[in-house]
């Protein structure tokens, strides 16, 4: 008998994290104009996917998970995040 779960019931643990690369859903991607980023972090707060990361001196999206919703670009007070169409 082959089992998938080590548990008796329908339980799960973050030790086995669900890793869906939701970046594949994306039809457009955010590109931060690095030099223009004010590091205000508003995109970090508002990114629904929780995928904004801080680099040396700017914020940018983790494109493995970014679904391309455009909220970061929308809330950016510096207009430093461009939405670029993904080419297939």
């Amino acid at each position: 008998m082959k089992f998938m779960s080590k548990f008796e019931g329908p339980w799960s643990t973050p030790k086995e994290p669900l890793d869906i690369k939701t970046g594949e859903w994306r039809s457009q991607r955010p590109v931060t104009k690095r030099e223009k980023c004010r590091q205000c972090g508003w995109c970090f707060i508002f990114c629904p996917a929780g995928c904004i990361e801080e680099k040396a001196h700017y914020f940018t999206a983790d494109l493995d998970y970014c679904k391309g919703c455009g909220v970061c670009s929308n809330v950016c007070p510096a207009k430093a995040i461009m939405m670029i169409r993904e080419e297939i």
Binding site: I20, W42, F44, A49, D62, Y65, K67
Partner: peptide, 26 residues
């Protein structure tokens, strides 16, 4: 806009990345 006064209260996000909620869901 004072994110610092907000994120000052933030802990590490317990929610992993890659949820299957709709794109951009608030």
């Amino acid at each position: 806009m004072k994110a610092r006064s907000i994120v000052g209260y933030f802990h590490e996000d317990p929610l992993l990345k890659g949820s299957s909620l709709c794109v951009g869901c608030p």
